[in-house]
């Protein structure tokens, strides 16, 4: 992975590319590319390094979350220096992410994982489309536009893929609430459920 990064950096010295490590045992690390350089990097990966097969494109939603951090602070009270531990709640802003899995058919290499991130989840949701580079991203980017609401600039035909045109929500986002159209069905577990009480919110 580092060789690919070095090759990209030598070809595009100004590009904003980094490696994102994956803690899982499979160690499939990924390249984090800034949106402005994505098209150049993608073309270089296809033509320069032979990654001609874009297999999988998926969207990921990272909603804003609160992270608790323990910060150690030095304090001097009455001339005595002491360390005070303090818990700070920090909000990490949310963003949407697109992940491309690339393979090389001729060299039989892969996967090289390319990640692009949007600025936030509401108004800065544009990313360059990689469909001009890999035609296979066509339907998958449309699906991500449909389900996550990422706007791909330069996509030839960006419409909703799976839901109908009149639909306004982005159902794969983590904060989507589906319409409540369940109906009550009596089950043999009703008595047990009544004893347990209403279901608790699962965090």
């Amino acid at each position: 992975m580092t060789e690919i990064l070095e090759a990209i950096q030598s070809a595009f010295p100004s590009a904003d590319v980094g490696i994102l490590t994956n803690p899982s045992p499979c160690a499939q690390h990924s390249l984090l590319v800034a949106g402005k350089d994505a098209l150049d990097v993608a073309k270089f990966l296809r033509d320069g390094l032979g990654y001609d097969f874009c297999s999988n494109v998926s969207g990921v939603d990272w909603p804003p979350k609160k992270v608790r951090e323990v910060v150690v602070r030095k304090e001097t009270v009455d001339g005595v220096e002491s360390e005070v531990k303090e818990t700070i709640e920090r909000e990490v802003p949310g963003y949407l992410e697109v992940v491309y899995h690339l393979f090389s058919i001729a060299k039989r290499l892969g996967p090289v994982i390319l990640r692009l991130r949007t600025g936030n989840r509401s108004d800065e949701v544009s990313l360059p489309s990689l469909t001009p580079v890999w035609k296979s991203a066509d339907f998958q980017e449309r699906e991500i536009y449909d389900l996550y609401g990422i706007h791909f600039e330069g996509h030839p035909d960006l419409r909703r893929l799976l839901m109908w045109e009149e639909f306004t929500d982005y159902p794969m986002r983590k904060d989507y609430v589906a319409p409540d159209d369940y109906e009550y069905e009596p089950t043999p577990h009703d008595e047990i459920l009544a004893k347990v009480g209403p279901p608790k919110e699962v965090a």
């Binding site: 994956n22 803690p23 899982s24 499979c26 499939q28 297999s55 999988n56 899995h101 996967p111 994982i113």
Partner: peptide, 10 residues
């Protein structure tokens, strides 16, 4: 519960 991380299997 697998460890945190990601994987692509095909």
């Amino acid at each position: 519960r697998p460890p945190a991380g990601e994987a692509y299997g095909r």
